[in-house]
Each structure stands twice: as C-alpha cells, then as structure tokens.
C-alpha cells in the first residue's frame, strides 16, 4: 500500500545548521498493516511521516501510495490518499468552524470543491451517529466551534475526520503525546478501534515503547535518519521493552540510546 524507496532529506543544506534528517529510508507497508514507529528525538520519525504526507519535497527517492507515484504531488493532492492526525491538537481541526462543518470538510477530502452546498442536510444524521461512537458527548454539540473543545476531544474528532473518507494510508504523528495519560489511553484505544473497523493501513509514531509494542502488527525503530529495527508478526508480539532497548543499543552501537529513548 505504501512504498518508500531510498528517500533522503537534508534541512538547511550548506549551513552550520545542516541536518541530514532522512538518510536513505526504504519501507514497504502491505494493505492493512499497522506499523508503529519509535526512536529518539531527531531520529527522523516525524520527518518520514511528513515526507509521505508531502509537507515538503524529498531530495531523493520515491514514494508511492497504493501504486500511485506521489513523489511530486503537492500536499493537498496527496491528501486524497492520506488521513492525518498531528501531535499538536490545534493542527488537525479548524477552530473557528463548527464540529459539523469540520466533518463536512473532511468528508470531501480528495474531491473537487465546487458550488454545491458545503453541508448537505442528509449528512447530519451520519455525523451524529459517528460522533456518538466516540463516547464524548460531541453528538449533542454539532454546531459548537471546535475551538471550544479540549485537546483530547479535538484529537478524537481529528481521528474521525481522518477516517471519514476511508484513506489508503493513515498517519498518526505522536497524536497522544500532548494529552494527559488518561486521555491519551482513550484516544489510543479509539485509534485502534477506527483502524480495525476500517482496515486502514496505518503508521503511528510514538515515544512510548510499551504502546509501540502493544499496538499494531509491525514495529520499526529509527536512529539517525535510518530504519534500524524492523520486526513484525509473532516476533513483535513476543517483544518486551528491555529486549527492544537491548536490540537498539546493539544496532546503534552505544548505550546512550537507553537514556535518550527512556527520557524522551
């Protein structure tokens, strides 16, 4: 479903702040794969997700989604294939617009937007039903401005928006990192549910090793702009946090990784 071939990205090339963020990353996800991505700060996790989403163009390499080469497509065109939830709860929704308007915008992802009504009457019931599925009471607040919602509510809504028009690929970029532990657990549970119900091919970046092991059927770890660990299937199911840490220090050739990963 997703095929990344040898992508490279350098930020601020030629200056003292030069940073090789991605150094030849290749990754293939099959349809229905739920891949968790871990790694220390600056390992390239978010950079890889942004490369796929098209936030900027990669320097080298190709990216294709569902057989379509998207390497040279701008962000808004790639959106036809991709659902996204960001780390910052503010980023995924339009705060000055109503909950129902946000959903209506998401329902038209990948379509030409013309002079038809932006919100058809028939849509309302469907959204109400979907919102009540979140269990947050948002179904009674359809016309509330999204700016009034809490971070957790916004992430839940963004998740719903990302999956409303079934995407070929769902990108979750540390989408629970800004939430308190209880809310984070709830949003994560919701993510699992939505991914399973829609059989979405998913990539989830997380800082939490336990979450990375518990969720999904595949786990990759990044270090210094590369994928250094890639486990899936039975092997991943049996994985424990200490094992993962050991594996990592072996690959990266240092112990500093422990602190870096555990503290981050």
């Amino acid at each position: 479903m997703l095929e990344i071939k040898e992508i490279w990205k350098t930020f601020n090339a030629g200056t003292v702040n030069e940073k090789q963020a991605l150094r030849g990353v290749s990754l293939t996800l099959n349809e229905g794969d739920f891949c968790t991505v871990i790694g220390g700060n600056g390992a390239g996790k978010s950079t890889m997700l942004n490369a796929v989403a098209g936030t900027w163009a990669v320097d080298q390499g190709t990216i294709s989604i569902g057989g379509t080469d998207v390497t040279h497509l701008p962000e808004h065109k790639r959106a036809a294939f991709i659902g996204r939830v960001f780390q910052d709860p503010m980023m995924g929704t339009a705060p000055t617009m109503q909950i129902i308007e946000n959903l209506a915008l998401a329902a038209r992802r990948g379509q030409r937007r013309g002079l038809r009504w932006g919100l058809a009457k028939a849509e309302k019931d469907r959204y109400q039903e979907l919102l009540s599925g979140l269990g947050l009471g948002l179904e009674d607040r359809l016309t509330s401005k999204v700016g009034l919602l809490s971070g957790g509510q916004r992430q839940a809504l963004t998740l719903l928006m990302a999956s409303l028009k079934k995407p070929k690929l769902l990108l979750l970029d540390e989408h629970t990192a800004a939430l308190d532990p209880k809310t984070a657990a709830k949003v994560l549970e919701l993510s699992d549910k939505i991914v399973a119900e829609n059989h979405l091919t998913t990539m989830m970046v997380t800082h939490n090793m336990k979450d990375a092991i518990q969720h999904g059927n595949r786990l990759i770890m990044m270090y210094d702009g590369r994928i250094v660990i890639d486990v899936s299937g039975e092997e991943k199911k049996k994985l424990t946090v200490p094992q993962l840490l050991e594996l990592f220090s072996k690959v990266s050739g240092s112990d500093e990784a422990d602190d870096k990963l555990l503290l981050s």
Binding site: E75, K77, R84, M91, A94, L105, R108, R116, G118, L119
Partner: peptide, 22 residues
C-alpha cells in the same frame, strides 16, 4: 458552498485545510 467552506478553512487553519485536500 464547498468552495466557500474551503476558503473559511484556509483562513482558520491552513495545515488542517491542506490535510483535508484543500
């Protein structure tokens, strides 16, 4: 309309708008 809503979304949150294909 859809187009008008897209305009409002652009002003409200450009990141969100692009992620929704606007």
């Amino acid at each position: 309309t859809e187009l008008g809503s897209a305009l409002r979304a652009t002003g409200s949150n450009g990141n969100m708008a692009r992620a929704q294909g606007i």
